[in-house]
Design a protein around this nucleic acid. Sequence first.
DNA 1: CTGAAAGCGCTTACAG
DNA 2: CTGAAAGCGCTTACAG
Lengths: 344, 344
Amino acid sequence: MNSSAQPGGVPARPTSRDVAERAGVSQATVSLVLRERWQGRVSPARAETVREAARALGYRPNLAARSLRLGRTRTALVVVPALSSEFFAKVYAGAARVAAEHGFGVVLYPSPEGIGPAPDPFAHSSATLDGVLAASMAAPALRALSGGGLPLVMLDSEPQDPGAAATVNPDIADGMRRTAAHVLDLGHRRLAHLAADVDSWTFRERADALARETARVPGAAIVRTERAPLSVRGGLAAAERALTADPRPTVLVCDDDVLAVGALKAARRLGLRVPGDVSVTGFDDTELSTAVEPELTTVRLPATAMGEEGMRALLAALRGETAPGAVLPVALIPRASTGPPPAG
Amino acid sequence: MNSSAQPGGVPARPTSRDVAERAGVSQATVSLVLRERWQGRVSPARAETVREAARALGYRPNLAARSLRLGRTRTALVVVPALSSEFFAKVYAGAARVAAEHGFGVVLYPSPEGIGPAPDPFAHSSATLDGVLAASMAAPALRALSGGGLPLVMLDSEPQDPGAAATVNPDIADGMRRTAAHVLDLGHRRLAHLAADVDSWTFRERADALARETARVPGAAIVRTERAPLSVRGGLAAAERALTADPRPTVLVCDDDVLAVGALKAARRLGLRVPGDVSVTGFDDTELSTAVEPELTTVRLPATAMGEEGMRALLAALRGETAPGAVLPVALIPRASTGPPPAG
DNA sequence: CTGAAAGCGCTTACAG
DNA sequence: CTGAAAGCGCTTACAG
């Protein structure tokens, strides 16, 4: 009886046994050939026969069986807080590219805080994982991850985290420092900070760098800090609060492009021109920042490079090497949303 | 020797055998208890002992072994063309929620055309999959998927596709019909269509509906169709071409919010007011549509519901039932980017 | 109510 | 150069 047919008539998936039978060799030979471990152990002619049989049957190795046997899966989990952000999409793309180069696959896990509903990234990753690459996680989500006992590389996160094999960060502090220097150089002295209402390293870093740089300039001060959820609406409400305060700030330094877009809307509603009456800065350089008018002065983060470097570090850790951390450079992109403060 | 310690000192993951040993029962009992199949077969006291042992050891079943044994994984692949879009993020969220309700997990595969590099969604899904849910795929990507031989449910795609067990669509034609009716009612007669440069059902549907509805009104015509890649920049260039044509259209009907945002920028560059000189419509109702000024008249798609319904259809197909297709209603959201055409 | 045993599909150390 | 056999960790039909 043909093992590729079942009682119900549903064609069963061919196994390496089927391939072996068709090629007239043992299962072992099939495995050797298909895994490219045959050189000097199987004759070239036989190897070709095996490949042909596999092709003819449409054979695909059962990955569950392979994983079980090998004890590893050549699969990494990439955890991101939000799917709908270009930044994380690029991080993923970079990580997946490097993983593929090394014969690794990648499973994406959008963490619950961002979007998904699954409470446990390990409950249903479809199989065992070899390692985890996690980006920009808030503290609680991070703790859940550390519990997995897998090699973990963090992106855009606390550098000294003891649970991580390595950390790959953009130079957030430098990005905010450049932003602050840019508006201070333009002459601004009354700054407001529109801060993301998220407890994570990356946003603490922004707040600290802004405070430090502002303190270096005599007469300059952060006259107001408004926390906002990461949405246009959140930025709008926070900016309205900041812009109706007395004295009114002359620049809104925002933790994220999406908040800055909200700030532009707030200014317009209040009849303030940007940058004539008030300047606005963003952070991330997403497509949003050039979608609006005026286009946003913002900080470009090396998203793809972070995914790539992070995956390299994870693969190194999986080989048992000490994974190198990294701090990647960022760039300030000056656009039309910033200018000199109004006279007086 | 303790099986949870290895020569190297690395703690091995505990297995069901370890749990059985600690609880003083057989491996079979462990499996029965942890899979909740013990009622009437194992005494409650023993069941509790097993659960305690599992907890104490931090036991997690090896999913590769379970999958191999069961021949299925309770895992579906969700394929989306782009990660950085709220629409697909919501589709994913809906699908994952319904899957979780049924004890299914979900693995995300951003198809290469959108963003990712992996050429074969099946090469590295980390294990076998039970089924596939694919959204808005262009024709070639779709063909690759059909080859998997897995139950396939399509979202936002050709309804009659023979490879799919079911198709769940938003009522795209109705959305574009309402958009066209809205601008025709306002008095517009010279329409331009900013069409997405993507060969897929959803965009063909938009073009057809727009043409049909326009043809119903005497004197109205699509005076120009411009194809554009799906980006702000693409929309900008296409809109500049359309707006410098003679006669100039009085409204730009765009296939997507991102194109409409580009159209707003083009109008501004040409010194045209929106909607005073030219009206603009979008499609999708993403956050972009309210980020810009004026805010976009657009069509809201039931993204989350599509993910939910799609996953329900896939789970039905996996149970061997005939999966119901569905067409979900959409809504026109009129905002400030549309108004009456200029006099003359 | 409980346990011993078989087997899912694969890979690899070993024997020839 | 090739094959027979063991075993990865789990689940389930079967025997007691």
